[in-house]
Write a protein that binds this DNA or RNA. Structure first.
Lengths: 128, 128
DNA sequence: TTGACATATTCCCATATGGGAATATAATTG
DNA sequence: CAATTATATTCCCATATGGGAATATGTCAA
């Protein structure tokens, strides 16, 4: 099975850095024609139009015809699923002290079985 | 240019629904061996190991060797970039009243130059 | 009408994918 | 040692990708 389509959901749509840039732009300036986005991103126009097409398909933006230009607008509320999902982890970095203490405890427990001291293949992952 | 690697950043890593499920699991149960994740997701073990590899590479999870099993742990703080990014749009749906008030203010400002949709569509500068 | 401008669409391709299948590696037990 | 268990890795492939290039579509102006 290949990777899911970029238009399969908002999570896939915003995985593209350029599309996030477009979203940021549209959040600052309420309405933007494609040309303005092209200038701001420095991407070729077809590339921008394709990104906008993806954002359109997942409902993250809407278009309004205005003369010969298409003015895009952000539908902020479509970002809510992402916000709601990631918000559930908020508490874990909000109470860092608690977390660090917990980790220390766990480490002490896990240390009952002590790995290491061989030819060493892969070290365990490290994080902050 | 093809799509960016799933390991290029957290946004790409969490685009995969199964990886989000793994993250949720690891958030509920602090530590989980691969086998437990396999059971819970109902995915073949190699698939799970590959997803864990992606999450490992972007730093979203850490491993601890414990006997012959690998116990995974979520590094919540790595989700912060996503949270911070999407949080900037919070006001647009969370504080509707504020938002409406803001719009009114902006409108008052923008009213110095009055755009219209009939004859004039040349310079439609949008304020920041 | 023709021409200029703004945007979208199509075709192309190198690349990464997620899962299937098989295998490799590692640790425990007898 | 061999066998078992737990996990990771490799090879395979159909599929979607993002941008380049070219073109199509749509809209205004003269």
């Amino acid at each position: 099975m290949p990777r899911a389509s970029t238009t399969s959901d908002v999570f896939n749509a915003i995985a593209e850095p350029r599309r996030r840039q477009i979203i940021e732009l549209l959040s600052q300036h309420r309405n933007l024609a494609v040309g303005a986005i092209v200038l701001s991103l420095g991407l070729p126009q077809p590339a921008v139009s394709k990104h906008l097409g993806v954002l359109r398909e997942v409902g993250l933006v809407s278009v309004n015809k205005q003369g010969q230009s298409r003015v895009y607008e952000l539908n902020h509320e479509q970002l809510r699923p992402v916000y709601d999902w990631v918000k559930t982890f908020e508490r874990h970095w909000d109470r860092q002290l608690d977390r660090i203490r917990e980790r220390a405890e766990k480490r002490a427990l896990a240390n009952t079985t002590q790995p290491d001291q061989s030819t060493d293949k892969t070290d365990q992952k490290e994080q902050s």
